[in-house]
Design a protein around this nucleic acid. Structure first.
Lengths: 249, 249
DNA sequence: CGACCCATTGATCGGTCTCAAACATTGTGG
DNA sequence: CCACAATGTTTGAGACCGATCAATGGGTCG
């Protein structure tokens, strides 16, 4: 939530983000479970040379399904959702993308999904042609992108596991569990993790394959059970009882 | 189905498959929608140098979730399923892998899923260490693997779209639609496409997030509606009426 | 301060899950 | 080669859970 970010935090974040950065789980890396930088300083410099920093307002479309590719984006700040339309006109959200993620999966020179800013977004725009030229001659950069693709694949598989669960409450718990490692973007108050839900209920519903009503009911059921506590519409506090019952990803 | 493959077909197939081959949709390629070879002859030779051809009986485990990585497999013949166990002990099938696919997604040097042969399988075994050495110095091979990873990601997203549908019949139709491009492995009788379902009903159920009973009921509902016809347990004929109603991936 | 969008709550309906049993298929050993 | 055993598949009846339709309440931005 932007309102709780102080100016100096913005500055230091910007300082860190003067070049593209890709986060993910490395293929080889040891026991470090979390997301780590996949690019070296040199690679970030290479990418910076072809990148443009852009600001995207909430609700704006970054890329449209089936459109000819022009660029992919590296999120610096904010949240992006990618979705496709089902033939009965409903949105299905495929992923939420956070700082360190790449937006713009394509095949046959066309984007596969539509990407839309869920919050105001800052991102690096990487033109495809220049990017592919880089990839053509730099094996290390290539491996970084391969690692990122595998990580995305892994995330998508976790998403699948959520959709396979029947009860709304369990899907929500797995969703929170997936958001956990991204705690940097949340607020840490005392002991209990508080995580940010910048997206609307309808977006969560479209992500979890539920109706918005079911999301609402599920959230409040979890509150009644003492698993979570809600702080406004966009913050969830995970209570200890709930952590034990957390679903596996 | 092995029973319908003649000896000379086996020979010519083996001739084609004397080296590893990876199929997928290229990132750049033009309008050619289908799966195309992603490896050049030279790259296949490189891989052949480190590969061992192995035969895996039906039901055998290729790799176990959380196990330390040792090799990935390139399927030559047969079908492999990858799955994970949910905490309530159920299987969730993440993917069916066919000839031209790669088995062995890993992170932090550990496999993410369990892989099991659904039919007798022939595959190339590619030791990780040797493979990564190749990838370290060959950008073109790297791009091929990146393309394959993106294609897998795409397939997983289609799978997600299936899981998001509510009715069993629609999930089944999308499943058939996804299997369509793999028609090479099926039998083509006259005009109508017949596709092979080598896996058990329970596997389909675990893949589509349904009970085995729901799969059975859904299949027979489609038969009653004149959308498909069943030829034994493992072959489905798509009737024309059904093609028009097919779901979008 | 008002209007719009979003979130919540309620009641009914439909589809799948579950449990249980009959049936078919496959593979095996005598 | 046949019969049996073990799986795998189909079918049936009842309960559960979320979807849908509809209406109320709350927050935010102009």
């Amino acid at each position: 939530m932007t309102k709780i970010v102080f100016m100096k935090d913005v500055k230091s974040a910007a300082k860190e983000a003067r070049r593209p950065a890709v986060l993910g789980v490395s293929l080889r890396g040891g026991a470090a479970g979390g997301r780590v930088p996949l690019l070296t300083a040199a690679e970030r410099l290479e990418l910076a040379a072809i990148a443009t920093l852009v600001r995207i307002p909430r609700g704006a479309i970054l890329q449209q399904e089936d459109e000819k590719i022009s660029a992919i984006f590296n999120v610096v700040e904010g949240v992006v959702k990618t979705y496709r339309l089902t033939e009965d006109g409903k949105h299905h959200v495929l992923a939420f993308l956070f700082p360190g993620d790449l937006v713009g999966l394509y095949e046959n020179s066309r984007y596969l999904n539509t990407a839309e800013a869920v919050t105001p977004v800052t991102a690096y725009r990487l033109p495809i042609a220049a990017l592919e030229k880089l990839l053509d001659r730099d094996p290390a950069l290539n491996i970084a992108f391969l690692s990122k693709a595998c990580h995305e694949l892994r995330q998508t598989q976790r998403h699948e596991m959520m959709l396979a669960r029947r009860e709304a409450r369990l899907r929500l718990l797995m969703f929170f569990d997936m958001l956990m490692p991204r705690m940097e973007e949340g607020v840490a108050t005392g002991e209990r993790p508080i995580l940010a839900l910048p997206m609307r209920r309808a977006d969560i519903a479209d992500y979890l394959g539920l109706s918005a009503e079911a999301v609402s009911r599920g959230l409040h059921a979890l509150v009644r059970e003492g698993v979570i506590r809600l702080h406004g519409l966009h913050e969830v506090e995970m209570l200890d009882g709930g952590l034990a019952a957390r679903a596996t990803g």
